[in-house]
Design a binder for these strands. Structure first.
Lengths: 208, 208
DNA sequence: TGAAATCTTGCACTCGGTGCAAATATCTCT
DNA sequence: AGAGATATTTGCACCGAGTGCAAGATTTCA
C-alpha cells in the first residue's frame, strides 16, 4: 500500500477518482450556469469532463444530484455546531447558534449562483424542498441527542419544524435583500425578530 | 349553444373531456396502489383508461401530476376558510380554524392511501415537499389580504412558514397515531400544544 | 511480472415526455 | 340536415435520462 506524504492511505485509484468527480462537478456546474439546467445534457457534461456518458452515472446517480451533492456539508456543519454547545444551553439557543454558524460558513459566491439556478428551475425546486425536509430530520436527531427527558420529543420535533420553516423564509428574505448587506448581521437580526414574533403567535394562539 | 338542464353550458365536448380525465385519474391511482408508482408505466395507465399514451399528456403534464392534481382542492378550501373569518379575528386563530377545517374535509380513505404511496416513493417525496411550499405561498397571500398594516408583511410570512412547518410535523405525528383516533380531536389537541410550545420557544429565544 | 480487483467504456434497451400532422369528433350557422 | 370551422385524439418519429451487461483498460499487491 503506497502512502502519500501526508500519511493518508490514498492510492492512485482514489486520487484519480476524486479528481474525476471534481471534474464532472465543475463541468456540470459551469454548463448549468452558462445555459441553464434543462438545456444541458448529460452528454455535454460528460464531454467537458472528458469521461463517457456512462461514467457520469458512476459518480452521480442523476443530473440533479450534482447540484445538491455539496449541500451535505451544510447539514454536517449544523450537527457539529449544535453538538458543540454546552449541554445546559437551551435548545433554542443551540439551534440558533448552529444555524448562523452553518449559514455563514456555507454562503459563498458559488452558493448564491446555485440558489439562483435552483430558484429559476422548476425541476430543481422540488428537489430543493426535499433538502429542507432532510435537514429537518437531521436537526430533530441532533436535538433529541441533547434532550434529557423523553417527553421532550414532541417539543424537539416542533422546534425543528418551526426553525426550518424560518430558515426557508429567511432564505427568501435574504435573496430580496439589497446587495452589500452583511449576512451575519442579517441573520442575527432575523433571529431577534423571529423569537419575538414566535412568542406573540404563541400568546395569541393560546388564551389571548 | 346547447344547454344542459341545470343551465351550465357544458357541451358533449367538456363532458367527455371531464370523463376521460376522471378515467385516467382512476386508472393511474389504482395501478399505483396495486403495483407502486415506479413499476407503473404510462402506457399501462393509458391502456386501462382506454386512451393513447399521447393523450395521457393532453390531460396531465407528467406522471407525478396525477398524484398531486387533487390536492389543489386543499389549498382552495384553506383559503376560503380563512377568508370567511371575521376581519378582527387574530390571524393566528384564523389560520388554525382554516387548517383544521381543510384537514378534516380532505382526510378520507383515498387520501390516506395516497399518503402511504408518497411516503414510500422517493420520487414523489420531493414533489410532495413542493406542495407544502406552494401551500405556504398561498397561505401567505391569504394572510396578507387580511392584514391591514403593511409592516405586518414579515409577521405574516413567518406565520405561514411556522404553521406549514407544524402541518408537516403534525402529518408525521398523525401517521404514527394508533388507528381509531379522531382526526378532529387530534388536530385540536395538537394546536393546543403547539401555541403553548411556540410561546416557550419565543421566550427562551429572547431574554434569558 | 502476473493474477485479482477495480474502473471505464460502448452498446443496446426502457421509459418519460414533446412536436407534428393526419384523422376523427363536435360545434355553429344557415 | 349538412358544410365548414374548431377542438380532440391518435400515431409516429424523436430526444434525453437512466440502467444492465460484458468487454477492455488500469491499478493493486503478492
Amino acid at each position: 500500500m503506497t502512502r502519500t506524504t501526508d500519511g493518508a492511505k490514498e492510492g492512485r485509484r482514489e486520487i484519480k477518482r476524486r479528481q474525476t468527480r471534481e471534474r464532472i462537478e465543475e463541468a456540470a456546474m459551469s454548463l448549468f450556469l452558462e445555459r441553464g439546467f434543462d438545456a444541458t445534457t448529460i452528454e455535454e457534461i460528460a464531454e467537458r469532463a472528458e469521461v463517457s456518458k456512462r461514467s457520469f452515472f458512476d459518480y452521480f446517480p442523476s443530473k440533479e444530484e450534482v447540484v445538491f451533492a455539496w449541500q451535505d456539508g451544510f447539514a454536517d456543519h449544523l450537527m457539529a455546531a449544535i453538538a458543540s454547545r454546552p449541554a445546559d444551553d437551551p435548545a433554542v439557543k443551540a439551534v440558533q447558534h448552529g444555524l448562523v454558524s452553518a449559514i455563514v460558513s456555507a454562503a459563498d459566491e458559488r452558493a448564491m449562483a446555485l440558489g439562483e439556478l435552483i430558484r429559476r428551475t422548476p425541476a430543481l425546486k422540488a428537489r430543493d424542498q426535499l433538502k429542507y425536509a432532510k435537514l429537518e430530520l437531521k436537526l430533530t436527531e441532533a436535538l433529541k441527542a441533547r434532550s434529557r427527558s423523553d417527553e421532550e420529543r414532541l417539543r424537539v420535533r416542533l422546534l425543528a419544524a418551526v426553525v426550518i420553516g424560518a430558515l426557508r423564509a429567511a432564505g427568501e428574505l435574504w435573496s430580496e435583500q439589497p446587495p452589500g448587506t452583511s449576512l451575519e448581521t442579517f441573520a442575527h437580526q432575523f433571529f431577534g425578530d423571529f423569537w419575538k414574533t414566535l412568542a406573540d403567535f404563541g400568546n395569541e394562539g393560546q388564551g389571548r
